[in-house]
């Protein structure tokens, strides 16, 4: 049996990292087990409802959509975009409001930092937890879409790792932003940004319909990259453009992790 001190010595823990982000997942699971399932179900249902309302509702009016040289059924067109949305929603749910609560109300991170855990353990653990939720949402959505016969081919399964990358990026960035917010009013800002981004990022129609300047703004936002990346894997249209999307999310993940762990240190270890 090793003592807490022997463990700390053997890990060569730095001031930032004790090598134990997985205990955050254990804690997340313990808390989740006894919590209500309602937010999980509603979070998962949102893109499904979008698919039904827009795909089968609006879709009957719209008929087919043409992007570039390919023409397809409208419902089929929006499915991968909504998958990316689903991954984002799952990741954002945990990394913003839940993180805000643990930062400012329950002071959970402060408690954790009075143990040998470091800020990077907390950032990595919480972001991974949020990423898992995003992944679960997108798997659920994929199941529904497949059941509806909207999956173009077996290769659509590759959209899942792509959706995970989207979830990871939003989880990481979401937690970093949240670490700067102190009031509920400031948190409202997140929704203020998310809603238009969700509507205008091209999950429901190709952004080529926009004037040039608006198209450029949308192309700078993460969700558009997410949707395009998932869509590329979904339809098997892999081009070098996908690398740009992947790079965009890798930068987002790295920035989020870096900022979050620095902020945790500034907040609780000063």
């Amino acid at each position: 049996m090793r003592t807490a001190v022997e463990i700390a010595v053997s890990r060569k823990s730095s001031a930032m990292y004790a090598g134990r982000p997985h205990v955050l997942l254990e804690r997340g699971w313990l808390a989740f087990r006894s919590s209500t399932w309602i937010p999980v179900v509603t979070g998962f249902l949102e893109p499904v409802l979008f698919l039904l309302a827009f795909g089968y509702g609006m879709g009957t009016l719209i008929g087919d959509v043409t992007t570039g040289t390919t023409t397809m059924d409208y419902t089929l067109f929006i499915a991968p975009g909504l998958l990316a949305n689903s991954a984002m929603n799952g990741a954002i749910y945990d990394s913003t409001w839940n993180v805000f609560w643990k930062l400012n109300e329950s002071k959970l991170y402060k408690t954790m930092l009075s143990t040998p855990l470091g800020p990077l353990d907390i950032a990595l653990g919480e972001i991974t937890w949020a990423l898992i939720r995003g992944l679960v949402y997108s798997l659920g959505f994929l199941t529904v879409v497949t059941a509806l016969g909207l999956t173009p081919s077996f290769w659509a399964i590759l959209a899942i790792p792509a959706a995970s990358l989207v979830a990871f990026g939003f989880a990481s960035f979401g937690m970093a932003i949240t670490s700067f917010f102190k009031t509920y009013q400031q948190m409202g800002f997140i929704n203020f940004v998310l809603l238009p981004m969700t509507l205008f990022s091209g999950s429901l129609y190709p952004i080529s319909v926009y004037p040039d300047w608006l198209e450029r703004i949308i192309m700078a936002l993460p969700l558009w990259h997410g949707i395009e990346m998932v869509r590329a894997f979904w339809f098997g249209n892999i081009s070098s453009g996908v690398l740009v999307h992947i790079a965009y999310f890798l930068v987002m993940i790295a920035t989020g992790l870096f900022v979050t762990s620095r902020r945790l240190r500034a907040l609780f270890l000063r």
Partner: peptide
């Protein structure tokens, strides 16, 4: 790792039970 800390304000994990609080805190120490 050498210290036990009892802060001025109880900061127990309200989402967990009594024994879960003890369990997860030990896990934080590895």
């Amino acid at each position: 790792a050498h210290l036990g800390v009892v802060p001025q304000q109880d900061n127990l994990d309200n989402e967990l039970t009594v024994s879960e609080n003890l369990f997860i805190y030990g896990r934080y120490f590895g």
